[in-house]
Design a protein around this nucleic acid. Structure first.
Length: 466
RNA sequence: UCCCCGGUAGCUCAGUUGGUUAGAGCGGGUGACUGUUAAUCACUAGGUCGUUGGUUCGAAUCCAUCCCGGGGAGCCA
């Protein structure tokens, strides 16, 4: 007989009064000396537990069932029946329970049927998926990833797997992880006594990628609509609830497109992904709204139903200057928007998601397209109420001479980017793309406040256990 | 990296004018009781008070150091 998932059992996918086999991990056990024990079983297939009813007459009741504690792995054969008690519609009348794995020392099993702090659960990252919260996060993370792939697939995008190991330090030095097989205790030296990376594995210096953008642009200028979705690495020593040294990023890139097209894509993308998650993960989202963040669902619905407001950076500065509000950092043309500025724009002034466009060129990256005013670039940030910046993107500079000038102005050597410049020599077209941190998106969806709790194994400065 | 806060039982925490055997709830064990819902009740076991050093007759408590965690800032996604 095939095993039934707890999700199917509770959803009524199995006819009542038919034999079933379920398996999973015990959450709690409650005994009645009058005749039976109740076992709450979870297998990760859904948030809810399945209740097993074990009669004292069944085999092994005294020496096995009464020894079950939280965390034990069992397989239960029985009959799915409508529950006689309140709290669940279906339960299983067990006829036999096999114990596949005992808990060696129940006294110190870390995951107890009670509230744990997220700080503690991080220290047992290998066991925290057994909690309600991390089970729900795991399902939502999967569901959001699927929603993202589905969205792009439906829109005719191709998923491009850009390299993890790269030789180009796209966004400046000092923030990359070096990849090397050299013996740190015996480094090869050249004539100048510098480390000789020609002797390294790849014959040159290599690093973990900080962005797949440059690589995916090449595929954009052939496949028209592409995206990356993969791990990204930053060696920045920043210890905050919003930063990871290893995180996942989504970077769509569209050809024959300008900044307005990109803004439209960003809005449609966010609304579509949120709609999909709310639809397919209603029970997990209800859990987050009940236990983690009361507005978890309502704020997503609100964003889905609000037209995004678009404004130029210059207008944003004017609004902030005329707001009559005192900011810690005074808004001024030429300076980047602070978190407090972004929050004012999206939460108070517009009370809707805002797309700020056309920033001063000095505060943005070299690859962003210079506007006709020679003063601003076609960059955009999507700001959402309650979270601030959620997406950053730009139309790319497709003109060879201007791109080369901007690289040199930022101290980058065009010779290192020959292949990137080729794209502007051979059939260049206007194109644009944005980047979105997957874990930040998950924080926004779930209402979890620390980014270390929405990735299975967080890597942060000074910490890479498991 | 900077500023602030914290580290006491498996977990969540209480415990300073420095003073004999460091407490509670939950969890574990034992028993009672009940179609139970993080059940309830009783009993019980369980801690070299983050590390190292110092002050003192005496340190969980005071000082220094380091480690780890949290919040905020900067940077960003």
């Amino acid at each position: 007989m095939a095993e039934t998932s707890i999700r199917d059992a509770l959803a009524g996918a199995v006819a009542p009064d038919t034999p079933v086999t379920v398996q999973g991990w015990v959450r709690t056990r409650r005994d009645s000396k009058a005749g039976f024990s109740f076992i709450q079983l979870n297998d990760g297939s859904c948030l809810d537990n399945l209740q097993l009813v074990a009669d004292k007459e069944m085999p092994g009741y005294q020496d096995r069932i009464l020894r079950l504690t939280a965390g034990c792995a069992i397989r239960c054969h029985g009959t799915l029946t409508e529950s006689k008690g309140r709290g669940q519609s279906f339960e299983v009348q067990a006829t036999e329970i096999e114990v596949l794995g005992w808990v060696e020392n129940p006294d110190t099993y870390p995951v107890q049927p009670k509230r744990h702090s997220f700080e503690f659960l991080r220290t047992v990252a290998h066991l925290r998926p057994r909690t309600n919260t991390f089970g729900a996060i795991t399902r939502i993370r999967h569901g959001a990833a699927k929603a993202i792939h589905d969205y792009f697939h439906t829109k005719g995008f191709y998923w491009v797997n850009t390299p993890i190991i790269t030789s180009s330090d796209a966004e400046g030095a000092g923030e990359l992880f070096r990849v090397s097989t050299l013996d740190l205790n015996n480094l090869p030296r050249d004539d100048q006594q510098q480390v000789d990376f020609k002797r390294d594995f790849f014959g040159q210096e290599t690093f973990l990628t900080v962005s797949g953008q440059l690589n995916v642009e090449a595929f954009c200028l052939a496949m028209s609509k592409v995206y990356t979705f993969g791990p990204t690495f930053r060696a920045e020593n920043s210890n905050t609830a919003r930063h990871l040294a290893e995180f996942w990023m989504i970077e769509p890139e569209i050809a024959f497109a300008d900044l307005d097209d990109l803004a439209a894509l960003a809005e449609d993308f966010l609304k579509s992904v949120f709609t999909d998650v709310l639809k397919h993960h209603a029970d997990d989202m209800a859990f987050f709204a009940e236990r983690i963040e009361p507005t978890a669902i309502s704020r997503l619905e609100s964003l889905i139903n609000s037209p995004f407001v678009r404004m130029d950076y210059a207008e944003a500065i004017r609004i902030l200057e005329n707001s009559g509000k005192t900011f810690e950092y005074k808004p001024e043309w030429g300076l980047d928007l602070q978190t407090e500025h972004e929050r004012y724009l999206t939460e108070q002034h517009c009370q809707a998601p805002v797309i700020v466009m056309n920033y001063p060129d000095e505060i943005k990256a070299f690859y962003m397209r210079l506007n006709d005013d020679n003063n601003t670039v076609a960059a955009m940030d999507v700001l959402a109420p309650g979270i601030g910046e959620i997406i950053g993107g730009s139309q790319r500079e497709e003109r060879l001479d201007i791109l080369t000038n901007r690289m040199q102005a930022e101290g980058l050597d065009p010779e290192h980017y020959g292949w990137f410049l080729d794209l502007r020599k051979y059939g260049t077209v206007p194109h644009a793309g944005f980047g979105l941190g997957f874990e930040r998106l998950l924080n926004y969806i779930t209402g979890m406040t620390n980014i270390r709790d929405v990735i299975p194994y967080p890597r942060t400065p000074g910490s890479a256990p498991f």
